[in-house]
Design a protein around this nucleic acid. Sequence first.
DNA 1: GTGATGAGGTAAAACGATTTAGTAGAGCGC
DNA 2: GCGCTCTACTAAATCGTTTTACCTCATCAC
Lengths: 372, 372
Amino acid sequence: MSGRDRHGPPGEGQGSTGKRVTLREVADSLDLSPATVSLVLNRSPVAASIPPATQKRVFAAAEKLGYRPNILARSLRSQRSFSIGVVVPEISEGYASGILSGIEDHLMGSGYFYLVASHRSKADLLDEYLYLLKERLVEGFILVSTPIEEPPGLPAVAVAGHRSLEGVTNVVLDHDRAAHLALSHLADLGHRRIALFKGHPQSADTEDRWQAIRRATRSLGLVIHPELTLQLGGEALDRAFSPDEGYQEGYAYGRLLLDRKADFTALFAFNDVSAIGAMRAFLDSGLAVPGDVSVLGFDDIHGAGFQNPGLTTVRQPLRAMGTAAARILLERLAGASHNGPVTITPELIVRGSTAPATARPRRRDSSDGDGE
Amino acid sequence: MSGRDRHGPPGEGQGSTGKRVTLREVADSLDLSPATVSLVLNRSPVAASIPPATQKRVFAAAEKLGYRPNILARSLRSQRSFSIGVVVPEISEGYASGILSGIEDHLMGSGYFYLVASHRSKADLLDEYLYLLKERLVEGFILVSTPIEEPPGLPAVAVAGHRSLEGVTNVVLDHDRAAHLALSHLADLGHRRIALFKGHPQSADTEDRWQAIRRATRSLGLVIHPELTLQLGGEALDRAFSPDEGYQEGYAYGRLLLDRKADFTALFAFNDVSAIGAMRAFLDSGLAVPGDVSVLGFDDIHGAGFQNPGLTTVRQPLRAMGTAAARILLERLAGASHNGPVTITPELIVRGSTAPATARPRRRDSSDGDGE
DNA sequence: GTGATGAGGTAAAACGATTTAGTAGAGCGC
DNA sequence: GCGCTCTACTAAATCGTTTTACCTCATCAC
């Protein structure tokens, strides 16, 4: 709608090699001035007085010569770049790439491109990238799970939101609903001693989700057991995990949980990756999942359903969230006012990793396998 | 080395808001011409005759005012954009995002950005995106697992290569070594009836790998059983799978394999995703992995080791491949001549999904579980 | 005094659009 | 014939650089 509406046809007029046709050349071929051609092609209101016949000639010539405006020149003059900056913690990770794919879907359809930068949770890199992106005249930002301290200086949409900031529209998951779905599912299965993985301190969702979990716990008559609550990326472990070692980290924290020797019948992890890692730790130590311990993830990343057992999880519609973020940003760039946060609704996906709690202590006891 | 060598410091000179400082303003503040300032800042050889004292003043003023060249203007004039186009089939998928993260690593360090486009295996989208990227004056392409018909018209590096094309440097995995690693591992375990998943016809690696498998099979004294060979995305199934349904597709083809009732003791899949899907199909139908069937994947995507059982697989160093692609492209842009293909060496990662072949027919028979 | 040389710059033309402020000519009323 | 209004355009400035082709002044050799 905004953006350019002509995309194709590629490769017409001239081959993919050869010099580009400029506005001047089109104008010359028509014995018109570049100004006229520009006005017509851009459907400027000023072109209202140009007779339809001439307009037709202009369009025809542009088509025939395969004219494509030089985006750089246009951007320089009009101070628009038709590109936006997308900032993610780490691109090779399921959450970010899911969102990204939604963003791309929407942007491409609108004539925009995007530049991606991964800050790997380093504040200085983040600052630098925001700077470099502005230098490239991106028109706005989409910040994915990226906590920033001050307004970025351009219209922005934050995907795993955080506290509200001037000029930043938040796209947030309904964490209360998510926590309630997850915990009531476990409660209904009879779980009372539920272990929890809190998210990394630098993850934008961590705090919101944690508060939601506390509220849900209370409203369901459950209690949070501090000895069963582990903070990912916390000081509990001597070893730090790099951003793409989420599975290993989950495994390590799963082990840690077992080492504490405090009984629990279920784990509600911060995300699928840590859930899968922990599940593996449980299995390795001889516990059955879900026989001895139920495991509940978060996100529903690709492949979550193909774990063994399939991972029960709270699905975030990542692609839809990306699409929404892109749409909102473009609307704002087109002049729409920026209203409150946009809420996304999660969904509980029940698979094989959760089952009724059993009274039996969590000790190796593989009398009944997971037949199904 | 090429590219700009100054990155930071962000946020100095002026806040993140406020108008940008132009070259003209720097020049005016120094009572010099923009030309001089430009020459000095760019360390042009022409600036040799400018006395060091003046040069110092110029740098100091630029720093003080927080001058940052406008990239659009620079690009327009010098016909360089300091950005490259990365084309992938689908961004939210592990292979592409792994490569991407390597690409990013290298590019960012060199002052380049990249624009991503996902063609979702549609030839018309691909053409259009190549066109749009050229329109944005990207300086070159990195094509990830993207087969193209004709030279793209710009320097390019293809990551999961294909037939050689003018101007395209291929970064290819050593498929012979990969196939040999995988098949000799299975052969050593006593497997003779090995099922195979061929890749999608549109995947660039498919044909190379298949030929490599044929060679490896011969040299190992194995035979390929047509009834155990399935082509992913082939006509065997009535249902087509979208690009992000790789797991489901693997599951479906796993089932298909079982339905054929032809005995096999191992599966060597085209990639981890289909291997995991198939593994799940085997488990669901009561077969033990690796007790009844060994499963061998390809890629070593994130989380492959956290499957249950852990997936034995041929690792492609995705990130390193991305880095290599970016490095080669930048070298070529800097004038290096484009030599032959670059070969990447795969590695066999043995985990729990492969074990010695058993004579026992593949029928439900769960007498010994997969304890450890 | 002349011509050459070098030092230390600068003017101005690109790059390829967009857009504002006109302008030439036609038509028309009077 | 004058002013006015339209119509159908166009000239030229502008965006912010880069880069080539100068230019001016000193100095020096002869």
